[in-house]
Computed example of a mutant assay.
Amino acid sequence: MVIVQEADFDAATLTAQLRERAAGKAGALVSFTGYVRDYADNQATHTLFLEHYPGMCEREIQTICDTAQSRWNTFEPVVVHRYGALHHKEQIVFVAVASAHRGDAFKACEYIIDALKTRAPFWKRETLSGGEQFWVQQRDADAQKTETWNTPLSGTPS
């Protein structure tokens, strides 16, 4: 299930829905929730504005989820990603993966969030409390971490 929306989400409800769909076959469920945090050292974040490419964004996230399912034995992952104006400490993204075993659930969840950060077409503009605005640039470390998933190892980034 992939949802890209402006509205906030309820992580507990999304988790319960995934458990219901897994119908008692999942021995593990791993989730991740990302929040708006301060990026600048000397000023607080006032607003993080996320733009996305509708249609393409959902397709890319679904491709990421399909890849995770093909690599690890999981049930259909849940990804909810918000767009629009988000304020400090608000939820941005939710990823949940259920599996018969914890290892697959952990690896698939980590892969999905890593790939989302570098492959999903989102653009982030931050406004600081002092009014300064800038586009958030992708970090080299994030791109390098995502690339490690493409190495033919046991499915764990090095």
Rank of each mutant, 00 (worst) to 15 (best):
I113V: 12
D8I: 06
A96S: 07
A22C: 05
G24E: 07
G34V: 06
L128N: 04
C109N: 15
T33G: 14
S70L: 00
V36M: 11
W72A: 01
A143P: 08
G84W: 07
A141M: 09
C65Y: 10
A105F: 04
A141W: 00
E58A: 07
P157N: 05
V136D: 02
P54F: 04
A16S: 07
F49M: 09
F75K: 09
Y111H: 08
A23P: 08
Q69I: 03
T127H: 05
Y35F: 12
V97T: 13
N73V: 02
A98N: 04
F134W: 13
H87M: 09
N150M: 09
A68C: 02
T146W: 14
T47C: 00
Q138V: 09
E51D: 10
A22T: 03
D140Y: 04
P121R: 01
G103K: 04
T148Q: 15
K107T: 15
E126S: 07
A11Q: 09
A44N: 12
T15F: 05
F122N: 06
A26Y: 03
Y111K: 09
R21K: 11
Q133K: 06
K107F: 13
S99Y: 00
V78H: 12
R125K: 15
T63I: 03
Q69A: 15
Y111S: 09
V136G: 01
E58K: 07
C109S: 15
A12C: 08
I3D: 06
R37K: 13
G24Q: 01
W135A: 10
T47A: 01
A96H: 06
A120K: 01
H88C: 10
D8L: 03
D142M: 00
L29T: 13
E110C: 13
M1I: 07
I92C: 15
T148F: 01
Y53H: 05
L50R: 02
E6A: 08
Q138W: 04
A115M: 13
A28D: 01
F122S: 05
R139G: 00
W149E: 00
T67V: 15
C65A: 14
H88Y: 09
Q62C: 11
A143F: 12
G155E: 05
A40H: 10
R139L: 11
R102E: 08
E126H: 10
S99G: 11
T15D: 14
T146F: 13
T67F: 11
A100Y: 03
D142H: 00
L14Q: 07
I61T: 02
V136C: 08
Q69D: 10
T146S: 14
R71T: 12
V95M: 08
Q5A: 11
D114W: 00
G155Q: 03
D104N: 04
P152I: 02
V2L: 12
V78Y: 12
K107R: 15
T67C: 15
H101A: 09
F94W: 11
A96Y: 07
R71Y: 05
V2P: 08
L153S: 13
H88S: 11
V79P: 06
V2I: 14
Y83V: 14
L116H: 02
H52F: 02
T45N: 00
E76L: 10
R71M: 14
V93S: 03
K117R: 05
